[in-house]
Nucleic acid binder design. Structure first.
Lengths: 250, 250
DNA sequence: CGCCCCGTTGAGGAGAGTCAATGGCTGTGG
DNA sequence: CCACAGCCATTGACTCTCCTCAACGGGGCG
């Protein structure tokens, strides 16, 4: 839960009482090997998942085998809040590294939210952030060049790691193959490879062993059109928050 | 509110009491001309919007003027549920036809949801559906050809119109220019024009005056890879629903 | 009537895809 | 301990989808 709490705290002040509530939720912990399938299309969803460790991808497959990775799931991310209403999955989730997830019954999770306005607010933030990431993904693949897409993705994943509590050392351990990056960005692995090589030759990034070092952050951000405000959602007072007394609809 | 209720009823049984609750919400009704700006980036959001009539687009602009339309907003859609937590808009919303929207203070809306589990469930569905539409959009622009994208978008918009209560007459009034379709699908207006012309020549659709007639639904769906289950989320019992007694986490 | 917006069409260009070969790395089995 | 297989990144050569630039024309509206 540590990384999840780190993410939530990025947006909402949480006291120890609230983190205790979360930790106290009934749960089990599941471990997976790289390439395992965590969620299959059509599976009923009655549980909420928290990524404790490792990376996973959420993706759809077309009939002819084309794959689109909708987004990456990193430590601290929670997913299938949709489960709260017991829908069916319309996509797959696979691990791409060894992964451990904490599985919480949706019902118990809901009850806890009902008892803590702050927690409810925090998870609302998380949901908003997730949607924001999806929208950014749309802009990225809809209107950016290969170069821009890759630069942008690197910066996004780096920032998400920071928000989840990772060290700010300008490096990103990216456990995704060229193929996965391609399927996330609507490109081919060949072209991803070429483009990353080019970024490397331009001394914007360096790579070794699946770790990317951001060498020239400013230039990279300029190329990507990466906005500083992205995911730095302004920490405002919350309508859910019982302490919020100054909410004035304009 | 009629179209919104039609949409919600597609997923959740709502009694008259609940629809009355919604209608009774304090609100104002705003009217806009085509091309007006409804939501601007950076605006604080403290209200929830219901599209009563007309179409709008939600989009982002890049520095150099490139535009990505994230999605279309149709009658019955509600948006900026994010407002519930008073975030700032990270995108624009413009009308593309004459539009009337009902504006409800977020706080009052929240209070009503708190008092009606069914309404809360219904809007949760709406949010899930919205996210599902975003994911579909990612798959569409990430991994489909121009032909497939356009066919798929037509079928999606048609289905959304049906869900909102429109007549099932195989026609879609699509008040979007080639330019808008292009900006939604990650293409150029020229190529959209060519591709639509080709669909027309193949007798898959016909067009006149901004109305598209679906001539060969089956073929069009095959080309688009449009899945029948899409947006036809199975109506299941709801965890929120007080009448739900058989919820068994597996 | 004439303007402007929009859709269409043509010709040529470019970014990304396809096909294919190479080579490094890792893990495994003889 | 070495040989070999499999996976993955890289690179080259060629192709194709989609883009760019440009011209034309129809329909609505002042």
């Amino acid at each position: 839960m540590r990384t999840t709490l780190s993410r939530l705290r990025y947006y909402v002040d949480l006291a120890d009482t609230e983190s205790t509530l979360l930790e106290a939720l009934p749960h089990r912990v599941d471990s997976f090997s790289p390439g395992d399938n965590l969620v299959k299309i059509g599976n009923p969803l009655t549980e909420v998942f928290f990524v404790e460790d490792g990376w996973a991808i959420r993706f759809r497959l077309l009939d002819d085998g084309r794959r689109q990775i909708v987004n990456f799931m990193l430590p601290g991310d929670c997913f299938d809040l949709q489960a709260l209403i017991s829908a069916q999955a319309d996509h797959f989730v696979d691990s791409i590294t060894p992964v451990t997830i904490r599985v919480v019954p949706a019902r118990a999770f809901l009850e806890t939210l009902a008892n803590s306005a702050r927690l409810a607010a925090a998870f609302w933030w998380a949901a908003i952030q997730e949607e924001s990431i999806l929208r950014e993904q749309i802009v990225r693949i809809g209107r950016r060049s290969a170069r821009e897409r890759i630069a942008h993705l690197i910066l996004e994943l780096y920032r998400r790691r920071i928000i989840a509590g990772a060290e700010e050392d300008e490096t990103l351990e990216l456990p995704a193959t060229r193929d996965m990056i391609a399927d996330a960005l609507g490109l081919t692995s060949v072209h991803v490879s070429r483009t990353i090589t080019e970024l490397r030759r331009n001394d914007l990034i360096s790579t070794q062993n699946g770790t990317i070092r951001i060498v020239e952050r400013a230039k990279l951000a300029a190329i990507a059109g990466f906005e500083d405000s992205y995911l730095h959602i302004q920490r405002t007072r919350l309508m859910f928050d019982p302490n919020n007394t100054i909410n004035t609809p304009h």
